[in-house]
């Protein structure tokens, strides 16, 4: 608690101070994201699809966790549940102690597509969140200008989104999500739509950014290199129904850069991941074959 209060960007919930319900005493710090026995089921024309099957996980404050798995394994659905965009069918998702039933401004999200408001300039896009939360226009624009400097788009502050490249748009989307100073930043394959070069630059940017914002980050990707490079922990998911297969700690030194991509420890880790995913992928494929 005391350690956390040193960080102005991550304000402790006042509720917890007032209620002061003693947690079961343990030396383990309290998880900021807790997923317990979560199942999510979708209705489809031919019945039901279990997108997420009894998943439990915990993310510690300040951690960077990646969810990796084949497409359709439910990793985005799991992330949406953490965002409050998807209701649990069974089980529970809590963020900062409160169950997620609807989106909350202390949780930011970056999607695969930037989804910037096309009618707003870069500056106004970033200021949207603070304005929506009732901050004055001056205050909101000041926050926006700081973030624009941070993402290096000062020259484009008054540009409209469609005039920017994909990478620049995604940087604006990240800045917009950060404008509300979220305690948790959820990222759903944010670099998936970018070309390889831009993606590498964006990954390095995110590594730098992370040191400055100090938010807990959950990052969905199907790119193992990306997951290992960025994360403290990689959760590997299996397909149909979505489950967490393996929880791997990435004990590589920080600060990291793409230079670690040739580190032996990195390569060993990557081999583990690939083996797991390949076996899973084959299983899922055979299941699909069997069904059709």
């Amino acid at each position: 608690m005391v350690a956390m209060m040193h960080n102005p960007l991550r304000p402790t919930s006042p509720l917890r101070l007032v209620d002061a319900v003693p947690e079961p005493s343990s030396a383990v710090p309290e998880a900021i994201i807790r997923v317990e026995d979560l199942s999510i089921v979708f209705d489809v024309p031919r019945g039901e699809v279990i997108a997420v099957d009894r998943v439990s996980l915990a993310v510690m404050p300040g951690e960077f966790v990646s969810l990796v798995g084949p497409s359709g394994c439910g990793k985005s659905t799991l992330l949406n549940a953490m965002a409050g965009l998807e209701r649990p069918f069974e089980g529970e998702v809590t963020v900062a102690g409160k169950p997620m039933l609807a989106p909350r401004p202390d949780i930011g999200m970056v999607f695969q597509q930037p989804h910037l408001f096309p009618w707003k300039s870069v500056r106004r896009n970033i200021a949207h969140g603070p304005r929506a939360l009732g901050k004055s226009k001056t205050e909101a624009l000041r926050i926006a200008d700081d973030l624009i400097d941070m993402i290096g788009l000062t020259k484009f502050a008054s540009a409209y989104p469609h005039t920017l490249s994909g990478g620049m748009q995604q940087r604006v989307a990240i800045a917009r999500a950060l404008a509300n100073q979220p305690r948790v930043l959820l990222m759903d394959e944010p670099f998936g739509a970018l070309d390889a070069q831009t993606r590498a630059v964006m990954q390095d940017n995110l590594l730098e950014l992370r040191d400055r914002i100090n938010a807990t980050i959950v990052f969905v990707t199907h790119d193992i290199d990306e997951a290992i490079l960025l994360s403290d922990r990689v959760l590997i998911m299996s397909a149909g129904p979505g489950r967490i297969l393996r929880d791997l700690s990435v004990d590589l030194p920080r600060p990291r850069s793409s230079a670690i991509l040739t580190d032996p420890a990195y390569l060993a880790l990557k081999r583990d991941c690939l083996d797991l995913i390949r076996t899973e992928g084959r299983k899922a494929f055979e299941q699909m074959e069997a069904v059709t």
């Binding site: 965002a83 965009l85 989106p103 909350r104 401004p105 949780i107 930011g108 999200m109 999607f111 597509q113 989804h115 910037l116 408001f117 949207h128 969140g129 929506a132 939360l133 989307a173 917009r176 999500a177 404008a179 509300n180």
Partner: peptide, 12 residues
Amino acid sequence: GLIRAALMLGTP
């Protein structure tokens, strides 16, 4: 996507 982004930002 725009609606979801706006929701996540706390748009009333």
